[in-house]
Design a protein around this nucleic acid. Structure first.
Lengths: 139, 139
DNA sequence: CGACTCCTACTACAATTTGTAGTGTAAGGA
DNA sequence: TCCTTACACTACAAATTGTAGTAGGAGTCG
């Protein structure tokens, strides 16, 4: 399950998926249980306008092809669920992106980090400072 | 000039552009002067296999549409040059991405930053520590 | 058993992005 | 006037994402 892009537009799952894909993943991840296409379709319908069953199926099966969803064939209707938890997914993306960012921009990124952290949540600055200390201590 | 994606694959300009677009931007940014399509095409030909003039033109004009290149109509052949310097471009992307990363992942990103910095270049850790101190002092 | 419902597979189309390239036109020089 | 050449316009292909029709098969109900 290799993501292609991190999108500048949107937020949350929309950074990684198309709009419909994101909504579907959202639903799957919000449900502890495995779900059928119908389940997902009905949840979608509650939120927005009616979605064609086949549309939902196609997108879900594409997500299976991409390795994001797992499909278990059951008698009447197949069960789908994410391959990894949302937390694990975000963890992976965060790690990958952070590494890429630093590889790509090096000290340029460092400069912006401090500003960005301060802007988003100054508490994160202390957290970061703490992490650095720990890292250095371990050597 | 709003970029769409940061690609996980590739490196450098390939993170932001298609392969040919990236090569073209590379050439434009490496040349202090404005260049014609022909200039760019010939540079490309030196590096790789022959490129059709029209192909280069189409891609360059698309880059103009995207606001990445500027086109100045001259008598016989138009002059093209990047709207911003490579440094300014990288600066903008770095800033944008860092902010997005932190908005999206918050403290998750903080954790990975330290590891990533240590992995790529431990010297960056000191730099970061320094920056944090400065930021805090100013308050 | 036969008819019906409903899930699934297969297929197809549209828009967008990126690479590729042909054709036609117009402008400038010989 | 004719020719070269740059440019505009147009088109097509592959990939990505959203959308949806059709057909077949499997279970259900009478």
């Amino acid at each position: 399950m290799k993501m292609q892009n991190f999108k500048y537009e949107g937020s949350g799952l929309n950074r990684f998926f198309g709009p419909l894909e994101a909504k579907i993943m959202e639903i799957l991840w919000n449900n502890a249980e495995e779900m059928t296409i119908k389940d997902v379709q009905q949840k979608l319908d509650k939120e927005a306008k009616a979605n064609n069953f086949n549309t939902v199926m196609t997108v879900m099966n594409r997500l299976v092809d991409k390795g994001v969803l797992q499909k278990k064939a059951v008698a009447r209707s197949s069960q789908y669920k994410p391959v990894v938890t949302r937390e694990a997914f975000m963890e992976t993306q965060s790690k990958e992106l952070t590494l890429d960012l630093i590889e790509e921009f090096g000290s340029l990124a460092v400069t912006h980090m401090v500003d960005a952290l301060d802007k988003v949540d100054p508490g994160l600055l202390d957290q970061l400072e703490q992490k650095i200390k720990e890292m250095k201590k371990d050597r």
